[in-house]
Design a protein around this nucleic acid. Structure first.
Lengths: 337, 337
DNA sequence: TTGAAAGCGCTACCAA
DNA sequence: TTGGTAGCGCTTTCAA
């Protein structure tokens, strides 16, 4: 522990070969006679030598690690994405480094400039920055996940937020709902924006004008979900249906409905975006727009590693992969017609 | 992106100084005249130079990163620990690298041998290995969290699992319960073992002999919680109280109770270990043994960084810090007496 | 206050 | 098949 680390040199000396030969053995290159290979291997064993891969990385400029940067690590959506990327990366021989930025742009930047950020071979990024500019400056293979910026110059893996929200809203309408509220947060990123548009478009296309009083916009937090759901339900003309535009807003809404002693799917209909634990727990279960979270991570990792391995071939136009969503109909939407 | 990275040499040439001087400027050392410092700084700006900290690390043998290794990243207990360590580490100028091993010993080992594992300055480890031997071989500052091995040679941050379980069981007994069941998992680590002992000891001390039929031992999963709770509740002499020895077992138990249409805190009493979302959602809320998860991470990070900064002073005897737990009494325990 | 130069541990080219 | 050696980009003596 305290004693000097043993290096390739020590091995070379002991084995009576050059460091070059030891290096060849370590890296499993050919052009080494079986006998010397054996000898070197034995010495490596004896000395309990472990190559310093940092030194190697300095030379060949790759580390076989990628990072996945997410806004928060407490949200199951992000951990699912992480798990997907970790799995693929591992299969491809890459280590994945997980970083949570708390949605803080400063932390995100700091990370990218840090030891870790500088030394990974590629990045999977669910960004917190709101301008393409920031992403454009990232000088290494990067895949943007979930939140995308067209001028970023990077590939992206997203889901069809628009369609998810559209389908949810349409489902309400088809079941006879007219007073349909939406709870969402700031439209800082495409995901939130698209969900709202999907809602709006579905309303308009079916001849309804979205009532601003039914649009509650907060912070994408459970607290806001709770607060806004209560406000909506206590208003003098409450909506008959609520679309909660992400998983935590949905959880807050579920709590509010429970606390107000309303019957889900009876007194009030609800659709959430993304699955969540409470939605599955309550009875009836909550209808949600399900997105392939884990797959997003897998897809992103595959694209990233392909890029890393392929090197900078033609700087082709950024690819966007859009995965599909699915409306999981459970019992939380009442049929009014 | 494709063009060669600019290095300290380029800066030196442009600024008409030696690399040594540039290095001094970068590291904010004194012994540099104000005028040259200005000049160098200006060139650094112009060239948009960012030091390669990997090269620096090769020389001074530290990276200012630590890692926190956990069995799984989907469990809020672990993410809370992570958040605690990240916060402290950040404050102290360290980056934290998060690694989830899926409870797989192989993955844990692979990580420690990897680029990342070798190059962090210290490790916070919620281990998956079951023998002290493994931990003893880790040749760098390490803090064991939650799961501890006495002969590991490392410091540890734990909670008082024994007392938590003891208090929970005692609470049942004081409320007049006698048929008290426990659902837990394999006793691979001290945490699970101690919780069972706490339960057993409380029973014995109050004159009850723990009935093996009331001890359901599975895999620490939600499914097992569900399955065992059902088994217990459907047996011909069901317990009046269940102690679910971790958060996911508790969630499974809550589901089982709900699905069997039993009234929590009325038909069946329940205490969980560790908080969880369902425990807080259901009504009455579930009484739980609360442990200071985030604090565990903070404490561990503080100890680790202290160790890193202090270097290897005396190889003092490993310190164990045991944080206290608290029984949060909610409404899920019925008073029978 | 500044610079020259010797590493840190490894890889990869060129010679032998 | 092997070895010598010039880097990779930086830090840190030691001298100037």
């Amino acid at each position: 522990m305290t004693n000097r680390n043993i290096t390739i040199k020590d091995v070379a000396k002991q084995a009576n070969v050059s460091v070059a030969t030891v290096s060849r053995v370590i890296n499993g290159l050919d052009r080494v006679s079986e006998s010397t290979r054996k000898r070197v291997l034995k010495i490596i064993q004896e000395l309990n030598f472990v190559p310093n891969n940092m030194a190697a990385s300095m030379v060949n400029k790759k580390t076989n690690m990628i990072s996945v940067v997410v806004p928060e690590i407490q949200n199951p959506f992000y951990t699912a994405v992480i798990e997907g990327t970790v799995e693929v990366a591992k299969r491809e021989g890459f280590f994945t480094l997980v970083l949570s930025t708390n949605g803080d742009e400063g932390e995100e930047e700091e990370f990218l400039d840090s030891f870790l950020g500088k030394n990974v071979d590629g990045i999977i990024l669910i960004g917190s920055h709101k301008e393409a500019e920031f992403y454009r400056e990232i000088q290494k293979p990067t895949i943007l996940v979930d939140r995308y910026f067209n001028d970023s110059g990077h590939d992206g893996v997203m889901i069809d937020n628009y369609r998810g929200a559209y389908e949810a809203t349409k489902h309400f309408i088809e079941y006879g709902h007219e007073r349909i509220a939406i709870i969402d947060g700031a439209h800082d990123f495409n995901d939130g924006k698209d969900r709202f548009w999907g809602y709006k478009q579905a309303m308009l296309e079916h001849g309804f004008t979205p009532d601003p009083a039914y649009h509650k916009q907060g912070n994408w937090t459970e607290e806001d979900g709770y607060k806004f759901a209560k406000e909506l339900l206590q208003s003098h003309q409450p909506p008959t249906a609520i679309f909660a535009a992400n998983n935590v807003l949905c959880k807050g809404t579920i709590r509010a409905i429970r606390d107000m002693n309303l019957k889900l799917g009876e007194d009030i209909s609800l659709i959430g975006f993304d699955e969540n634990e409470l939605a599955q727990f309550v009875q009836p279960q909550v209808t949600v727009v399900r997105r392939p979270t884990r797959e997003m991570g897998e897809q992103a990792a595959e694209m990233l590693i392909h890029k890393i391995k392929g090197g900078q071939l033609e700087p082709s136009k950024p690819k966007k992969v859009i995965l599909d969503v699915e409306l999981m109909k459970c019992g939380s939407v009442k049929k009014l017609n």
